[in-house]
Structure formats: C-alpha cells, structure tokens
Amino acid sequence: MSKDKTFLALADFLIPAHGEMPAFGSVCSFADAEKALDFRVDLKEGFHRGLDADLASSAEAHLERLNKEDGAAFSAVTTIAICTYYMNPRVRELLGYPGQESVLYDSKATQIYLTDGSLGHVLARGRKYRPTPGL
C-alpha cells in the first residue's frame, strides 16, 4: 500500500465523518499533510516510519501498535492529521473558527461589570488582604 493511501486510511480512522463534520479524506489530501509536515521537520522521520506498513491489519490495530511501540511515530502521524484537518478552510468554516483573528475594540468603553453591579458586589464584600504595617 502506498504511503498516501496508508496515511489517508489512518487519518480517516482518526477523523471520520461525524454529524456535520466531514471525514479527513473528503476535505484534505496527502499533499496537504505533506505541506503541514514542512512546518514540522522534526516530525518527518516519525511520520514516515508510522506509514511504513501495509495495513494488513485494520487502521485501528496499526495505530494501537504504534501507540504502544513507537510513540514518536504515533505522535507524528496524529499531530499531522489533526493539524492539517483543523487548518482546512472548510473545516474552519463549519466550526465557526476564523483563526486567531485580530479584533478591534474601544479601550475606553465602559465595561459591563461596572454597570451591571457585579464588580460592586466584590467591593461590597470588603477588604481581603491582611495588612502588615508594624510587622
């Protein structure tokens, strides 16, 4: 089995379709995973080791074995799968995640806790610190 097929089989087991969310393979390709891997060259070795299998057994059995016997390979394959998936624009759209966007705000606007009385309750509960002058 080629590496890309192996990876997609593992990734689809890890990230199957569920409710509104698509399976890995229906929105991401092996090329996307390779692009992600370029950001993490430290994972390359483990990633390729993790795909070095003919998957005669099921994807789950292979992952189970990797998890027990080759933690670095397991971690590389799963990290690349999940990060590639959640970097995907369609997946982000479905989640309602615009990324770590910047948000403008008015630093002088009156904060709600000042007007709804909640901070007033904190003040009403009184002093909390232990004064120390003279000690």
């Binding site: 890890l14 990230i15 569920h18 409710g19 969310m21 189970e64 397991f74 799963t78 999940i82």
Partner: peptide, 25 residues
C-alpha cells in the same frame, strides 16, 4: 481536542480512542 499533548489539561493516561474518531468531533 486534548488529542495531542500540547495543552496543560490533557490527562496523560487513557486510551487513544478516547480522543479520536467520533469522540474527537
């Protein structure tokens, strides 16, 4: 997601399946 050990609140023990598949979503 807790699926990779990057965040402080991820428990170290547990089966990997708890974090993947339908559980991940």
């Amino acid at each position: 997601s807790g699926a990779i050990g990057s965040k402080v609140y991820v428990a170290e023990e547990g089966r990997f399946q708890d974090f993947w598949g339908a559980n991940l979503h």
